[in-house]
Design a protein around this nucleic acid. Structure first.
Lengths: 148, 148
DNA sequence: ATGACTGCAAAGCCTTTGCACGCAA
DNA sequence: TTGCGTGCAAAGGCTTTGCAGTCAT
C-alpha cells in the first residue's frame, strides 16, 4: 500500500500551501512528499516512522502540525479507518475518491468505489437539514486470511 | 438525545450477559440501564458523567470494561461519530439501525435511514474478498445553526 | 469458599502545546 | 531583520491495566 502514483498532487499541494501564505519549510515539504508516496490512508505515526530517521529528521510535532494545515486546505482528508487514531488520505483535485474495508483482526485494508453508493449519499445529503460536505463509509469484517 | 425508548433491549442485554456466564454486577447493570436511556450514540465519558455520582458510584474502568464485553456480545456497536474517541450505540435485535450526520463545529447529530444506501452497501459487501460484518456511514458538515 | 466484579490509581497510547533556536523571505 | 517553521520535551485526553477489597453464586 505504498509505491507512489503521484498524479500531480504534490505540486498542487505545494502551490496551495504557498498561495495560503505558508513558507517552504523542510518538514512540511517532507510530509507532502511522504503523503504523495501513499495511495491509501496513512496515520501520523506511520509518517513519523518514515520521517524520523531522515537527515535532517522530522519531528513528530511537525507532522501533526502539517497534517492539520493540509486538512484545513482540503489537501488531505481524515478517514476513520483506524479506530481511535487519526488517518489521512490525499484529496484528489478532481474529486475522485474511494472507500475502505478494514479487517477487524489484522487491520488489512481493501478499497472500493461505487456509483450507486455515491448517488445515495448525494441524495441523502441534500435531504438533511445539515450542509453536508463530506462522508465516511467504512466496511468492517475479516479479510480472507483472517476468516479461516 | 436521551429520554428513554427502551424497546426491551435491557432485558435482551441482561439475558445475553447471563447466558454468556457473566454474574450480575452492580456496575454492569448500571451501564446497561444507562445505555437503554440513550437513543443515539454515547461516549464512555458521557456515561461516566452520568454514573460517577451515583450511589454507589460506578468507576470509569468498569464502564470501559462493560462496553468492551457488550460489544463482543454484539449488544452495542462502536460508531465513528466522535473523531478520535469511542462512541457506542445499542444494537437492536431486529437489525434495524440508522446512520449519522455530525456537525463539524458543534458536534450536533442528526440521524437517517435509507434503503438504497443499505442495498448498495449489501451489494458491495458481497463483492469484496473480505467477509463484511458491519458498516459505518457518517456524513459530516455544518448543522443549520453553525452554517449561518 | 471461590472466583468474578469493582473502584482506584497508575501506566499507556496518541495528540497537542510551550519554548527556544534556526531559517525563509 | 522579522516572525514563521521546527524539534524537543512536557503536558493533555482518552483508554487500559494492576491490584486489593467486595460481592454474587
Amino acid at each position: 500500500m505504498a509505491t507512489a502514483v503521484d498524479t500531480g498532487w504534490s505540486e498542487h499541494a505545494l502551490a496551495t500551501l504557498r498561495a495560503a501564505g505558508y513558507r517552504r519549510g523542510g518538514a512540511r515539504t517532507a510530509v507532502v512528499e511522504a503523503l504523495a508516496r501513499h495511495d491509501c490512508s496513512v496515520t501520523p505515526l506511520q509518517l513519523d516512522d518514515e520521517l524520523r530517521r531522515r537527515d535532517p529528521p522530522v519531528g513528530r510535532a511537525s507532522i501533526y502540525r502539517a497534517l492539520e494545515q493540509f486538512e484545513q486546505l482540503n489537501l488531505i482528508r481524515r478517514v476513520e479507518t483506524t479506530r481511535g487514531a487519526a488517518a489521512y488520505e490525499r484529496v484528489e483535485p478532481d474529486g475522485h475518491h474511494h472507500h475502505h474495508a478494514v479487517c477487524h483482526a489484522c487491520g488489512e485494508m481493501e478499497t472500493f468505489e461505487d456509483r450507486e453508493l455515491e448517488r445515495a449519499i448525494g441524495r441523502i445529503s441534500k435531504g438533511m437539514t445539515f450542509e453536508i460536505s463530506e462522508h465516511d463509509v467504512v466496511l468492517r469484517g475479516l479479510c480472507r486470511r483472517c476468516a479461516d
